[in-house]
Computed example of a mutant assay.
Amino acid sequence: MRLDVLNSGYARKTKVLFGVIRLFSGRPLPDAAKLVFYRPDFYGARAKEFTHEAMRGPSDWSVGDRELMAAYVSKVNGSAFCIGAHSATASRAYQDGQLVASVLDDLETAPVGEALRETLRMLGKLTRDGKVGADDMRNVLAAGATPRQVRDALAVCAAFNITDRLADAFGFELLDQEGFDAGARYLLKRGYR
């Protein structure tokens, strides 16, 4: 059930900003962006900063890798909006939509390096089961991921386990492919702030 707060729970100044964005972009603001403007002191400002750092901060994972992690975690959670948004963004970052589709279709046969594959397996297990063990971490490290890459991947996983749940709780409206592509261009240019 879609909560009406995403349509009307904003101060006048914020509503004007939404109108200006729509005027210049030709599209309404996606619900994910609207959510961070609702109670920014409680959620929005902190969520934007945490997500931006996880997705665009210094990391040995590429932007495409981290966007793929977000899409993969979202797929495990079954969050249609986030799958669409982050699949489009990963596809643009990699310039390879087939790669992204193959990972989301079948991780085991997808043409990715073993460090990324094992990291995605671990993130999937953590998302599904709510926990991972020492053996899972040993497998990721043995596949070639560094401890810093593990930490960075866990930050992406945390950000999108929260976002996926909010997307479902608030009933984010799905965009058409053109809308997801526009969002991907924005996220690659400006990040999550």
Rank of each mutant, 00 (worst) to 15 (best):
H52K: 08
D60Q: 09
T14A: 14
M69N: 06
F42E: 15
D31R: 05
P58I: 09
W61L: 07
F18W: 00
A71M: 07
H52F: 06
A54Q: 06
A47M: 12
F42P: 10
L29V: 15
L35F: 00
G26L: 05
E67M: 04
G19Q: 13
T51K: 00
V36Q: 01
M69A: 07
R27K: 13
I21Q: 15
A71Q: 02
T14G: 10
G19N: 13
A45K: 13
D31S: 09
D31I: 01
K15P: 03
V16D: 12
S59F: 04
L68V: 01
A47Q: 11
S62C: 06
V16Y: 14
P58D: 12
G44Y: 04
E49Q: 13
A45W: 08
T14Y: 08
F18L: 07
A47C: 11
R39N: 12
A54K: 03
A70N: 08
L23T: 14
W61G: 08
R56V: 01
P30V: 05
L17N: 13
L29S: 14
K13A: 13
A47S: 15
E53I: 06
G44M: 06
A54V: 01
R66Y: 02
K15A: 08
K34V: 09
K15T: 14
R39P: 07
R66L: 05
V63Q: 06
S25P: 11
Y38H: 15
T14R: 09
Y43V: 13
V16W: 13
F24H: 11
K48T: 12
P30N: 06
E67Q: 11
F37E: 09
H52D: 11
A70D: 09
L17E: 12
K34A: 07
F42Y: 15
G19A: 12
L68T: 07
D60A: 09
L35S: 05
F24Y: 11
A32V: 13
L29D: 09
T14L: 04
F18V: 07
F50P: 02
Y38T: 06
F37S: 02
M55T: 01
A71I: 04
Y43H: 11
Y38I: 06
R46G: 15
T51S: 10
G26D: 08
G44W: 03
E67V: 01
G19E: 12
L35Q: 10
A70I: 05
D65T: 05
G57P: 08
R27Q: 15
G26Y: 04
P58K: 09
T14Q: 10
V36C: 05
K48D: 07
A45Y: 04
L23Q: 11
P30K: 10
T14N: 07
P58Y: 12
L23Y: 15
E53A: 14
P40G: 03
Y38R: 13
F50C: 01
A33K: 08
W61V: 03
V36P: 02
A47R: 10
D31L: 02
P40V: 01
D65H: 11
F37V: 09
R66D: 02
S59K: 03
S25M: 05
L17H: 14
R46P: 07
A45R: 10
R22N: 14
W61A: 00
R56D: 07
L17I: 15
P28R: 13
S62T: 14
M55A: 05
P28D: 14
V63K: 01
L29Y: 05
D41E: 15
R56A: 00
R39M: 03
F50I: 08
W61K: 02
T51P: 00
P28H: 11
